[in-house]
Design a protein around this nucleic acid. Structure first.
Length: 353
DNA sequence: GATACGTGGTC
DNA sequence: TGACCAAGTAT
């Protein structure tokens, strides 16, 4: 890349961003904490989905200290429906580190900020450039797509190794005077113009500098391999009500899928050797009545699928209740963080009662 | 380096 | 409908 080309590209990009950028809530602040929250929420998540979560989250936790001291269940409830729930726990862990070890000042070097929980190469660069104006790369999927086209980079972006090529390209191209607008401009371009399919090249501010456009290859880039199917898990879940009207909830393990979220007692059926009632008795230490179906549906996660059948049942006898289980009133259940498929069962059950 | 980790929207 | 996508990180 020669100097003139670099200068033209960054000027065109930054100017376009400043004039055309969308009006987003996290663009109204330079508070590193709020930028950080937005960047974590935006990981693998659409802008439109994030907006209401961000607004609610910042209202509830306007400062590092308020988030640092929040109860985990309340925090997860705030995050409910956003997905990738470890982001919430890691964010709080990172925030606690800043409060305790950095006197509540978010670090402003890549070396230090990268030590924080949940802050990877992208988030580090995003917070540094957007909140502090530090010229650091922030390479996400948008940036790789935009630059693969602009510079005709044909490496497979599914390979982790490839990201380095893009980080180096950004460091060459970046506007040292306005790294915030440059990095955001790259992402904004990817989001609204240089889209995965049918890019709007005729509206693109850097079209005249785009090698892929010149070659007519924009639809064929970036190169991305990998695509694996999700495994199907057949699961059955039971909404169990006791005589006093309370309902049984189970807290999921603190690691792995949907960690620390609550659900109705659930069994996976690799075989049909036992009935659901029998497995519930063995696993949860309670006997229940014959069940009525609530709803059956598929829930597709990123790497697996639940084929879910859910039932309502009544408690017959509590013998030796599993330690991770607890009875809740209907009102209390609303306060527990539950994943989307469990909410679906709960909402259907409520309608039917 | 490969895999786990959510959800909702689009074509 | 299934496949793919969206401002990635941890292990």
């Amino acid at each position: 890349m020669n100097e003139l080309y670099k200068k033209q590209v960054r000027n065109a990009l930054v100017t376009w961003f400043q004039e055309e950028k969308r009006d987003l809530p996290w663009r109204k602040t330079t508070d590193p904490y709020k930028i950080w929250v937005s960047e974590v929420m935006l990981q693998q998540t659409k802008v439109d989905t994030v907006i209401p979560y961000y607004e609610r989250f910042i209202s509830k936790y306007p400062s590092l200290e308020s988030l640092a001291t929040a109860p985990e269940e309340e925090l997860l409830k705030q995050w409910e429906g956003l997905g990738y729930y470890s982001r919430a726990r890691n964010l709080q862990a990172g925030v606690k580190e800043v409060v305790e070890e950095y006197q509540s000042i978010v670090p402003s070097t890549r070396h230090e900020i990268s030590k924080l929980k949940g802050v990877g190469p992208y988030t580090a660069g995003a917070v540094l450039s957007i909140a502090y104006g530090v010229p650091e790369h922030a390479v996400d999927g948008n940036v790789m797509r935009v630059l693969s086209r602009l510079l005709l980079i044909k490496e497979d972006i599914a390979k982790p190794k490839t990201k380095k090529i893009f980080e180096e390209a950004v460091m060459e191209l970046i506007d040292e005077d306005n790294p915030s607008a440059f990095n955001q401009g790259l992402m904004e371009l990817g989001a609204v113009i240089c889209t995965p399919t049918k890019p709007k090249c005729l509206l693109c501010p850097v079209r005249e500098y785009c090698t892929a456009f010149f070659e007519g290859m924009q639809e064929g880039l970036p190169i991305k391999t990998i695509t694996k199917k999700t495994k199907v898990h057949k699961v059955k879940s039971v909404v169990i009500q006791a005589n006093d009207g309370k309902i049984l909830l189970e807290k999921r393990p603190s690691k792995g899928l949907l960690a620390n979220m609550w659900q109705f007692p659930m069994v996976e059926l690799p075989t049909l050797k036992h009935s659901v009632e029998e497995i519930i008795e063995l696993d949860y230490g309670i006997s229940i009545s014959k069940r009525e179906e609530i709803i059956a549906f598929k829930h597709i996660f990123s790497h697996l699928t639940w084929e879910m059948e859910s039932y309502g049942a009544l408690l017959i006898e509590e013998k030796n209740l599993a330690a991770n289980c607890k009875w809740f009133t209907k009102e209390e259940i609303e306060l527990q963080p539950m994943p989307v498929p469990v909410l679906k069962i709960w909402n259907t059950w409520k309608e039917k009662v």
